[in-house]
Structure formats: C-alpha cells, structure tokens
Nucleic acid binder design. Structure first.
Lengths: 235, 235
DNA sequence: CCAAAAGTGTTTTTCCTACACCCATGT
DNA sequence: ACATGGGTGTAGGAAAAACACTTTTGG
C-alpha cells in the first residue's frame, strides 16, 4: 500500500485508488543509416510466450519515472544511460494494456549514437538486442503503439529541432547527417540545399581535419555547436 | 534496491510496487482576450492552508488517465467535459511533489470556448473559479510547474496547428482570431498579413451574416472548417 | 459627419527549389 | 587515369514582411 498519509485533510472516508507504475523505454540508435530499437525478450506465460518487447520495468517508490527509465536503460537494455538523451513521451494507461493486471506505463524515448557504444552495448544477447525498426513489430503489451508514438515524435521533432544530433556520433560529415535525416524523415533531400540550410543555421561547428572513408575525396568533419537540443526549423 | 521482474513471472500472485496515480487538469479558456485557467481551492492542513491549485484527483483503478481527467473536469472544475478539447501533457513524478505521500500525476491540458459555457460553468464559487493566467501563481503542489508546461505547449502548438480553434467560439471574426493569437503568442501581428495567411490556408469557412459589436462596421463571421486540430504552419 | 473598427493591394525581400558539373583522393 | 563520393552556384518562383488608406456602420 502506498503511504498516502492517514491524515488526508478534511476528506474523511477515502477511496484510495492504486495503480502499478512502470517505465518503458524506446531506445533508438542508428547503425549504417538504419534506425535500430533495443528490444528485450518477454516470456510471461500464459500471456506472452517467447515474445519480445521494449525494455521496461516497474518504478520504485523512491525514484522518479525518469530515474526509473535511466535505471532500466542500464539494467534491461544494458546500455550506459549517461550516453543517452532521454525524453518523456507519453503515459499509457489503458486498463487492459497488461493482461496480468492494471499497469500504467510512462514511456520514454532515448537516443544514442552508435559510435560511443561499447562492444557490449552494441552487442546482442539472447535477452536484449538491437532490432531494425521495421522488424520491431508484434511486440508484447501495447509496445507496438508505444513505438509508433516514439517514431512519430522522432520524425516530427527532427524537422523542427536538432534532436537528430543525439543519434549522431560527436563528429560526422554533412553526408552522414543528410543520410540520417533522409532515413528518419523518409523524404529525399537535395544535397546542395540541405548543406546551405544547415550551414546557415550555424548549429554546426567545423572541426579541423577530414575523414576519408574510401578511395575518394575525404569529407570535412563537423560537430554540433551545442549539446542542447534546440528548437529550430530544419527541414 | 528496486526489484522488478522475475518473481512476478507467470500468473502467480505478484508483489508489485504501488503508486498513487492522479490526474491534474489545466483548463484554459479565453474571455475578453484574456487567458483564464480554472483553479480550485486547496486546503490540506498542515501542508496547504487556504491555498489554490489545479482541479485534480486520483485515478480510479477502473478508468484510464484520460477518463479520470474528464471525470475531474466535471466533478472538480464543474464544467461539461464534452465541451473541452483534451490533450495529455506530461507526467510529473517528483518524489516530493505531494508532501502527503508519493503521488504521480498525469497532467492534461483542456481547452474550452468561453461562449458555449453555461452561466454555472462560467461562474465562480468559493471552491472553483476562473483566474487570469497571470494571477495563477504560487499554487499548491508542483502546479506552478504544470501550468508552465501547459502554457509552453499551448504557445508552441499555436504556431503550427489549429489548436487555438479550441479556445474560440464556434463563430468568430478574423479580428477575434487575430487577437487571440496575439495574446497567446505575445507577439504583434500585421492585420493584413494575418488575414492573407489564414485565408490562404483554407482552414476557415465564412458564414453568412455579419456581426456588429458597436457603432462601427460589422465584421464577417467565420468558423473552422474542421473540428479536428490540424498540424499546419500558421505563424 | 464623426468615431471606430473592418477590410483591402502592392512592393520588397527573403527563403525555397530545381538543377549539373568539377574536385580530391586511393588504387 | 579512373572510379567514387565530396563539394559548390545560380536563377526563378513562392512566400513573408513591410506598409496606409478606404469602407461601413451607429449615433
């Protein structure tokens, strides 16, 4: 029972209403221009057999939802949460969303650069793995819906903020950035116009040096000028 | 340390961690070009004495957060929730946000046209009243913070969606609409450009007739073409 | 005819879009 | 020298911004 104090003011007979509170995390990264989500095995007979879902778990009575999300990124997704950008998405309170009982979930979206992940964090185990978004279907609970909300948010916020910077490695080329934008937004972008637009916004800082990725002309290297996600019209 | 998973496996009875879940509603309307919020008295000795806060209450185990919000709009704000546009805002889970115990609140924003409210709904009692936004300060709990999130959301969404239509009466003049935009966004708008922009978007439908509000030229009357809130760049 | 808000058009500037070729490098 | 992705400029059109006067009504 929660510790709503007995002294509840003037309300004498109190019908306390309880819920189980959980946090679920939609953890995104991009590898080879593919958006990946971190999935976790779900095996809760008789409801879910050898199924899969988002990393998540219950919120402890002594932690905030955000602290729980961070803890779960660590303990369930096996990724260092300090590397992740975290943003609250939506709270799912459908009565039947968990067949085992009433569970209300605060969903979070987390973004990570693939580079910067340790081999362990990049790796897959039987219980946790990176899945291309397209294959993250038919998940347990209402996790399909949660992923949809996350993808919608990611897409829409990409076009008016520097959010995608949180999926990029610290240093990247303009082509890298353009590719991510194209893959997330699902649109095609004109290379010249994209560069003009991005550079005019002054959200990037050029870094000395170039990067060669093959037997062709090396590209200039940039990084975001600010660590903060700024709301600016991008596309 | 929080333990969440395995011991709950299967259908066996679970020892789950419980939280008290509440819904708080930031109910906005506009009267005389002033943004109003519905406030409720808060008197919970020894923590809050003759204080004020948002209408809110606990979520029942058999209702979703949204259903609770609607119920509370009715029972606490004394307004017919069918008249309101409702949108989930954010979930506040600070451990100390309620001094009486751990309460996690799902906050909602609700928008209402002032016209269309009954005299009772427009009215103030000792327990519930409409307050100009500027005076909705020093509220109980973390309600100042909740209002801030609501106002930020209202402002930002106003510029890229037809959300403000939910604060307007069914029929209004272009000057009315412009005034609301100015008051919410806090910017000044050019009358001619505003009209051109709005009319070109084709989100309004002109209604036959005119409205005189004084001894000067009567204005044409419009209404929104769609009841839905559309995401379109407005300003 | 006066006061007050309603309503309208043009010009300038800025931004978006479309589009094609040369550059730098490793092999 | 060649294959490959990196990098650049310009012109035309659309949208935004700046700007002031005429119209309609009640009194």
């Amino acid at each position: 029972m929660p510790r709503m104090s007995k002294k509840t003011g003037g309300n004498s007979p109190r019908r306390l209403r309880f819920a189980v509170l959980a946090a679920d995390v939609v953890l995104f990264t991009v590898r080879n221009n593919t958006l990946l989500v971190r999935l976790h095995s779900v095996h809760k007979p008789p409801y879910f057999l050898n199924s899969k879902g988002l990393p998540g778990g219950l919120i402890d009575s002594k932690e905030t939802a955000e602290q729980a999300a961070k803890r779960l990124i660590k303990s369930k997704a096996l990724v260092d949460y300090n590397k992740a950008y975290l943003e609250q998405l939506y709270t799912f309170s459908g009565i039947e969303r968990d067949p085992r009982g009433r569970v209300v979930a605060v969903a979070y979206m987390a973004l990570l650069p693939w580079k910067g992940l340790s081999p362990t964090e990049q790796g897959n185990t039987g219980d946790v793995w990176w899945s291309p978004l397209a294959e993250a279907r038919r998940l347990a609970y209402d996790h399909d819906q949660i992923i949809k909300v996350a993808v919608d948010r990611l897409r829409s916020k990409s076009s008016y903020s520097t959010l995608l910077g949180k999926l990029m490695p610290e240093e990247f080329t303009l082509t890298d950035l353009e590719t991510i934008y194209k893959s997330i937004l699902g649109t095609s972008l004109d290379k010249r116009n994209f560069r003009k637009k991005i550079l005019k916004l002054k959200i990037l800082r050029q870094v000395p040096g170039k990067r060669a990725r093959g037997r062709f002309r090396p590209a200039r290297i940039y990084r975001f000028a600010s660590k903060k996600v700024q709301e600016i019209e991008i596309i």
